[in-house]
Amino acid sequence: MTEPAIEATGLTKRYGGVTALDALDIEVPRGELYGFLGPNGAGKSTTINVLTGQLVPDEGTARVAGVDPVAEPVRARERVGILPENGRPPSFLTVREYFDFVATARDLDDIERRVDRWAERLAFTSKLDTLCTDLSQGERQKVLVTQAFLHEPDVVFIDEPLTNLDPIMQERAKRFFRSYADDGNTVFLSTHFIATAQEVCSRVGIVNRGRLLAELDPRELEEETLLDRFFATVDADSVGDGVAGDPSDPAAVMEAPGADAED
C-alpha cells in the first residue's frame, strides 16, 4: 500500500494556556486536493507550520512526503512547497532575483524556463525586473504562489492562495491547483473561501479549536451546500460555549473560542 502524502497522529500544540492543536489526526493520500476549512483561530496555520517543520508539536507524530518534519525539518521543506498566509517576498530583490534566490536555496536548475512559464501563467512577465517592495498586493501574491510551486514539489501547502488575486487569476489558479493534483501531486489548501473548497477540492476537512471535526467529499453533497455543513459542524462543536446558534449567523462562528490561538 502506498504511503500517504501527509499523515499526522495526535498532533497537539499549546501556546501558553491556549491549545492551538488538540490531538489532531489527519491523513491525505497522494494526488488529492485537500481543503482545510475552519474559522479564525481554528488551528489551520499552526497545522501547516507543524507539518512543514516550522513548529515542533508538544505531542504527536507526522510524516510528510516520506519525511518526519519534526525530526528533519530542513529535509521536509526540501520536499514540499509552502505558501504562507502573510508572506512577503524580499523587499529589495527584483521578482526575477527572488526566484533566482529560491532556485539557489532549493538547488534548482533550468530556472529561466520555470520562471517564464509561471510568469506567463499568472501574467506577471512585465514585472520580473521590478523590486518586490514596489509590487501591488495581487502581484506579490502571484509571486508567492509561484515560489511555492517552482520546484514542482510532490506536496504543497497553500494558505489562502487566492487572496488579492483578480477573478481571472483566481480562476486560472484554481484550475492549476486541480490539474496539479490530477498529475499525482498533493495540494493541501487552507482557506476561508468555502465556495472555492467546494468547487475544486476532492476532500475537505473541517477543523475547529484544533480538532478535525469532519471530513467529506464536497461532490457528494446533495441537498445541502458545503457552507451549510460547515456551519452545522462548527456550531455543533461550539454548543455549551455560548456561541452556537443559528447557522445563518456567521458571527457565532467568527467568535468561536480559541480565536486567540495562532491561526
Binding site: T52, R77, I82, G87, S91, F92, R106
Partner: peptide
C-alpha cells in the same frame, strides 16, 4: 533589517 525567521522557515534553509 529586511529578514525574519518566518521567511527562511518556508525554505530548506537552516
Amino acid at each position: 533589517q529586511y529578514d525574519d525567521a518566518d521567511f527562511f522557515g518556508t525554505y530548506p534553509i537552516p
